[in-house]
Design a protein around this nucleic acid. Structure first.
Lengths: 197, 197
DNA sequence: CTCTCCCTTACGAACGTTCGTCAACATATC
DNA sequence: GATATGTTGACGAACGTTCGTAAGGGAGAG
């Protein structure tokens, strides 16, 4: 079924070159069909792009949700550190993170409203997920900061790592992750408890 | 002199719509001339884009440098907090930050190498600037973390705020800045000293 | 002051190319 | 024979770019 092949190729190309940097001809070539054939499956370029993007948000959200459920009971520092590692792993092993990071930054202007709406929806839900874990940690005395503050700061940490991965490359991202995590954990953890890294 | 007018218009449009989302006709229209006239001042679209981008890096770097020199002697927490505030202020009052944030994320692919090289150059120099201040703080006992770690984590904080300003909007950026700063400062400061916010 | 020469700036017209899109037609599957 | 999936050819629009040309101003010469 080339419906799926088209979406796969579109994902790769949109993630790498952006909406305007990718032509239907490029996508078709990647699949091995003519560009006009894409219209047998999608209404047009916008339709294809939005389908791929929204699918990406929903897949990423599901992943986050699954991660949270299966790792909820780990100690907070392990939980968060693993989440960051998984974030980096995902970035390197499929293009979905790349896709939304890039296109949320510079979406095609005539689709701006729709892209941003989907993005906010996604981000809000992810933050809610993490907030739960932080709330739990606070209740258990695992940390001293308020859950809301901690959750937002952690989300900012994710943003920063995302930036570094997209334009800083692997090494830079790892270094900044290490440095940021170091300080984040000191800033958040309860000095009475003795757990580290 | 429409040489400058062209660059101004290009800056605005490239920052808002990106390289591929901006046509020479759009830029010319903004200036009040025809697109062909742009060729009297620039070799072509790439030339115009790269000139504006590189100029932006150099202006931003100069700004950072000036800021650092004139504020070096403030207490570390004041120095850093003000730097963050100035970062947000600049984002709202001119488009240069926006330009490089967006186009570093999704540069035109045929200019990728050149854009990224300029970007790294800029980022490295900025990090060097901040490193100096952190080194000084460490020597003075203003903080406990190693200067390298602190500098990188702070740079990550800047990244995160940049992200939020571009696609999160004002309110989100302020909230995340507040939360991140809170935790960053606790994580970095010397618990023996009593200074806050 | 005037005439000439040149450089800058601008523009109309056109170039070749690529873009997304569409209608008509072919093929294969069930 | 209907349905899904491709191909083909063509379309108008937009793109960056190039050409020849013309207006304007400054410099230098007479």
């Amino acid at each position: 079924m080339s419906y799926q092949l088209i979406k796969d190729a579109a994902l790769d190309l949109f993630a790498t070159y952006g909406y305007e940097g990718t032509s239907l001809a490029d996508i078709a070539k990647e699949v091995g069909i003519k560009k006009q054939s894409i219209y047998a499956h999608f209404k047009g370029k916008d339709d294809l792009f939005l389908q791929v993007l929204k699918e990406t948000f929903s897949i990423e959200l599901k992943r986050e949700d699954t991660y949270l459920r299966t790792n909820f009971d780990k100690p907070l520092n392990v939980f968060l550190w693993d989440a960051l590692q998984s974030y980096m792993y995902r970035f390197h092993h499929d293009n979905r993170l790349n896709l939304w990071l890039r296109n949320a930054f510079l979406p095609p202007s005539h689709l701006y409203k729709e892209v941003i709406a989907s993005l906010y929806d996604y981000i809000d839900q992810v933050e809610q997920l993490y907030l739960k874990r932080f709330q739990h940690a606070f209740d258990q005395g695992e940390m001293k900061q308020s859950p809301g503050i901690a959750s937002m700061a952690f989300s900012a940490l994710l943003d920063a790592i995302g930036v570094e991965m997209v334009y800083g490359g692997d090494m830079r991202a790892s270094q900044k992750l290490y440095a940021s995590w170091q300080i984040f954990w000191v800033g958040i953890s309860n000095p009475n408890e003795t757990s580290n890294n």
